[in-house]
Design a protein around this nucleic acid. Structure first.
Lengths: 174, 174
DNA sequence: TATTGTTATACTCTATAACTATA
DNA sequence: TATAGTTATAGAGTATAACAATA
């Protein structure tokens, strides 16, 4: 098995991961289109399903988004009829967030798309290879401090967004 | 080896790849900071090294960026003294691009950073595991039509950028 | 006075379109 | 008329800061 000169960016593991990561994010977004959702919406539905009834601010922290963005995001999902704001009677400053019935139904569709996405991507791998790959990726993620699960407290990486990469951080286009 | 329910986004290969891809792109950007470069600059230096003397437009196509952005990018690199525009005497409309001496020196430093980045990421893997991972990733990339090498003609994916993902397209923040 | 959520504003990145100079 | 490169302009997206209501 060759180890193509890692200084030749295109061959390294880092390059491949960035290339695949950006590509797959885009593809997932496309798979979501028929649902009329953006990726950010899907992410919030999933997170909300596990945290129904938390305050807007609490959910924002889980997602790692700042308050301004959270307002915007929640507005969008409320307009779509998928999420509902309810004033907390005990503290009328805060808004608790709930999935609506439509939101729950949509979540099921999101999960279906997710399943199909995962299957499509790994279609060419045997079950053993898939497990092997997943295990290796989990190790890398752990090494990088990307918490075993997903976004435990969400690394509050504010500041400017990553922007597409290049080189070994390279992206199809930038 | 478990196969954590792929509908539980955090466990799937797709999720891990997106998570790692975005993370590693950001980390690579940070590793580039001491050089005073952004990732886009590094990418252009690398591409230019293999295509010295091509017209601005030709390089733009290789990189998959539109002409406007190419002007901006080239301006930046020229201000940094790393790249030089030279009018083509045969067709005075076009600008050929060349790495300067400083550009070549900087490229060497970029390659060093790339090497260190790759090493740091895979530090915890044995050589066999590293090769195994690289091989699996290459297969996925090929399956996804992400050309064996890097950006052969560069998929001209114009349009809005991917934007950070969520779910199995999930990203640390957003 | 502190906190939740909101609005106002500014800044970055990028794309589309108009323009210039050559051909 | 067509093409290479440039400049002008406008639109996303997201951050910072000021604000209103409630505690």
């Amino acid at each position: 098995m060759e180890t193509p000169d890692p200084a030749q960016p295109a061959g390294g593991v880092a390059f491949l991961l960035v290339q695949l990561g950006f590509h797959l994010a885009r593809v997932f977004g496309e798979r979501l289109e028929p649902l009329g959702l953006e990726q950010r919406h899907a992410g919030m539905l999933v997170r909300l399903a596990q945290n129904d009834g938390r305050s807007q601010q609490a959910v924002a922290e889980l997602l790692g988004v700042n308050p301004t963005r959270m307002v915007f995001l929640t507005d969008e999902l409320e307009k779509l009829g998928l999420v509902e704001r309810r004033r907390n009677p005990a503290d009328r400053r805060s808004h608790a967030l709930y999935l609506t019935e439509a939101g729950t139904a949509m979540l099921a569709r999101v999960r279906e798309v997710t399943r199909a996405h995962e299957a499509a991507i790994t279609a060419d791998l045997s079950a053993a290879e898939r497990d092997q790959l997943a295990a290796l990726l989990r190790r890398l993620a752990r090494d990088q401090g990307l918490a075993g699960r997903a976004l435990p407290g969400a690394p509050p990486r504010y500041g400017p967004r990553p922007v597409a990469a290049d080189t070994a951080g390279d992206t199809p286009a930038d």
